[in-house]
Design a protein around this nucleic acid. Sequence first.
DNA 1: GAAGCTGATGCTACACTATAACAAAGGCCC
DNA 2: GGGCCTTTGTTATAGTGTAGCATCAGCTTC
Lengths: 161, 161
Amino acid sequence: MTRGAAQQTAHHTHNHKVCIEDALTTARDLCAERGVQLTPLREKVLQIVWRSHKPVGAYEVLDELARSHKSARPPTVYRALDFLMAEGLIHKIQSLNAYLGCVEAGAPHSGLFLICRKCGATEEIADPKLDAALDQASKRARFRSERRVVEISGLCAQCAA
Amino acid sequence: MTRGAAQQTAHHTHNHKVCIEDALTTARDLCAERGVQLTPLREKVLQIVWRSHKPVGAYEVLDELARSHKSARPPTVYRALDFLMAEGLIHKIQSLNAYLGCVEAGAPHSGLFLICRKCGATEEIADPKLDAALDQASKRARFRSERRVVEISGLCAQCAA
DNA sequence: GAAGCTGATGCTACACTATAACAAAGGCCC
DNA sequence: GGGCCTTTGTTATAGTGTAGCATCAGCTTC
C-alpha cells in the first residue's frame, strides 16, 4: 500500500504506472473507509493529476478531462479538485497555482515540497524536524496553526548537474 | 532603523504610523544605497501596502492608488509590486495572492508567515531552526534551494481567545 | 410508487488575478 | 541633437477561480 522511500521521490526515470495504480488503489480504499464517493469523474481527475510528478494546472486538467468528458467545465474540475484536496489525495502547490498527487494519502502529514523550476518535477517530503520547528515557532507566537504551506523552488539534483 | 521584536508583531493595537514611517525611511535608504529608484509611484504603492499588517490584494492597491493617481491600471500596480519584491521591501503571500510589507527589509531573510484567518493580521517571523531544517531537508534531497514559501494559516493569539 | 431529501454534476455567467505588447515621456551621456 | 535606458501610460487579453441555479440519480419514508 505505501511505497518505499525510493519510489516516493520525483525521479526522472521510473515506472510511473506503478505510482498511478498505487495512488488510485489507495484513494479507492480510503474513500470506501470514509464513506465518501470517489465517483468516476473524481477518479478520472485524480488520474490526470497523477500523470506526472509535476504539478498540473486546473485548466490543464480541464483540457485533458474534456477529451473524454464533453460536458466538463471549470466548476467540474474545481469541484473534483476540492474534493480530492479535502480527502488529502492531492495537494495544491500555492506558488504555482497547480495541483499534485499526494504520495502519502491517508497518513496525516503536512509536507514540504521541493519544486524544480527547470523540469517541474516536485517532490513531497515529510520532515519531523521541520514540523517541530514550525510547531515551536507557532507556539512561541501563541498562534494556533491550522494549515501549512511549505514550498521550496530551485533545481533538482538532475537539473543542477 | 530596525524595530524591536515587540513592534514587529502584528498587534491588534499599536501605533501603526510608526510602522509606516519606519518602512518608508528604510526603503528610501536602501534604494539610495543600491542606486535604484524609489519613485513617487512606487513609494505610494509601498505606503498603501503598509496601511495595515494584513496582506493586501493587487486590485485593492489599485483601487486605493487610483484615488490619487487617475492613470493607474493593473500593470501600474504589478510593476510597482514587482519592483518592491525584487528589492525585498514587500513579500507576496502565496496562499492569499496578496502582498505584505516586509518588516526586516534589507536583512537577508526568508520569513515564516503566520496568517490569521479571522482578522487577517499576518506576522513575519525569522527562525534559524526553521532555516536549518529546510536547508537540511534540501541537502538530503540534493536539491538546490532558491526560493522559499512558508506560510501557516490559523488563529492569532487574540482571535483564538 | 409518489413525495421529499441528499449528494453529484451540468451549465451560464462572472469575478478576480496577472501579463503581453507597444507607445510615450524623461533623464543622462556623449 | 541623437541614442540609450528606465519608468510610466494604455489597450487588450490570458489565466485562475466561484456564484448561483438547474438537473439528475439514488435513497428513504410513507
